[in-house]
């Protein structure tokens, strides 16, 4: 009785406390969403009046080779980035899961690139990747190997960016895998040892399946990250050579801010958002359904 009354008395406080967010939501989430639906059917350079063009932005998108190019580039990035990230993160996580002195130090160091600004990391890698003066080609030259055209070759540029992104982000995923590993019940391994399972079989049949939720998180986060790729190609390559590093976000930015096509940029963003949601849903389905091998 008393509780019910007190609850009712507090109703309005809850509303007041939430009000700022409601206003924020209306201004910066709901309004942009609604406005996006308006914008995608218009041509607009912000300055002259908006002009209704119906589905023309989408007709253009379907015929736009650069849209497909940016999708393909993102795919190239993901196909290299995700497996590499999982392999490297899992490897280091397994090593760091062994009770050793100085684990904390190594974990902290591997995590360092995560916190540093992407711009700084990109400048750093620009120097590592430089064809004539770069550190990496310097190392190759010292063991008498030919230089690699990291960023100046259209086939190498996106893989190079994927490697850089892996280096930057892998620290997060090492930590996630460590959390996942520590959540696996000891008893499972003990039972398996009693059954005489080898270390490899234990990994295959216990560790890896138990890490499945972590893998989903990593795949989804990396995918979203891959679709948001912007500053890396913007600074490193400007989208070249030959559009091989033109990412979706970079293309949206160029359409909006170089060419002043706000409507088309909004349509690109809209389609990209649908693609991201679709890809993530499929990934979740596929990984969850995958039988524990």
């Amino acid at each position: 009785m008393n509780l019910v009354r007190s609850r009712r008395r507090h109703d309005r406080t809850g509303v007041w406390l939430s009000l700022p967010y409601v206003i924020f939501f209306l201004a910066f989430v709901a309004y942009p969403l609604v406005f996006s639906f308006v914008l995608i059917f218009h041509r607009w350079n912000i300055i002259t009046p908006m002009e209704w063009v119906g589905l023309k932005n989408f007709e253009r998108l379907i015929a736009d080779p650069l849209f497909y190019r940016s999708l393909g580039n993102t795919l190239t990035f993901l196909v290299i980035h995700i497996p590499l990230q999982i392999a490297v993160a899992l490897g280091f996580a397994l090593l760091l899961n062994v009770p050793l002195r100085g684990r904390g130090f190594f974990r902290a160091l591997y995590f360092l690139p995560v916190v540093v600004s992407g711009v700084a990391v990109t400048i750093l890698w620009q120097q590592l990747y430089s064809y004539d003066y770069g550190v990496l080609n310097g190392i190759l030259a010292s063991v008498h190997l030919p230089p690699v055209p990291w960023l100046v070759n259209a086939r190498m540029a996106m893989p190079s960016i994927a490697i850089m992104a892996t280096w930057k982000n892998v620290g997060i995923y090492i930590v996630l895998f460590l959390v996942g590993l520590q959540n696996i019940p000891r008893e499972l391994y003990e039972a398996a040892s009693l059954d005489g399972a080898t270390a490899f079989r234990q990994f295959r049949h216990i560790t890896f399946p138990m890490l499945n939720p972590t893998v989903i998180v990593i795949v989804v986060l990396s995918t979203i990250g891959g679709f948001s790729l912007f500053i890396e190609p913007y600074v490193l390559t400007g989208g070249g050579p030959m559009q091989s590093t033109l990412s979706g976000m970079l293309y949206i930015y160029n359409q909006a801010f170089y060419f002043g096509h706000m409507g088309y940029a909004a349509a690109l963003g809209f389609v990209y958002a649908l693609v991201i949601l679709g890809v993530v849903l499929i990934q979740k389905k596929v990984i969850e359904r995958e039988p524990a091998t």
């Binding site: 406005f35 996006s36 914008l39 912000i46 948001s228 949206i252 940029a265 909004a266 809209f270 990209y272």
Partner: peptide, 18 residues
């Protein structure tokens, strides 16, 4: 809100700022 990819709201948010 957490599920919306930011690509969709980015340009409209910029226009709101303008």
């Amino acid at each position: 809100t957490m599920m919306i990819p930011f690509q969709i709201t980015l340009i409209p948010q910029y226009i709101l700022m303008v």
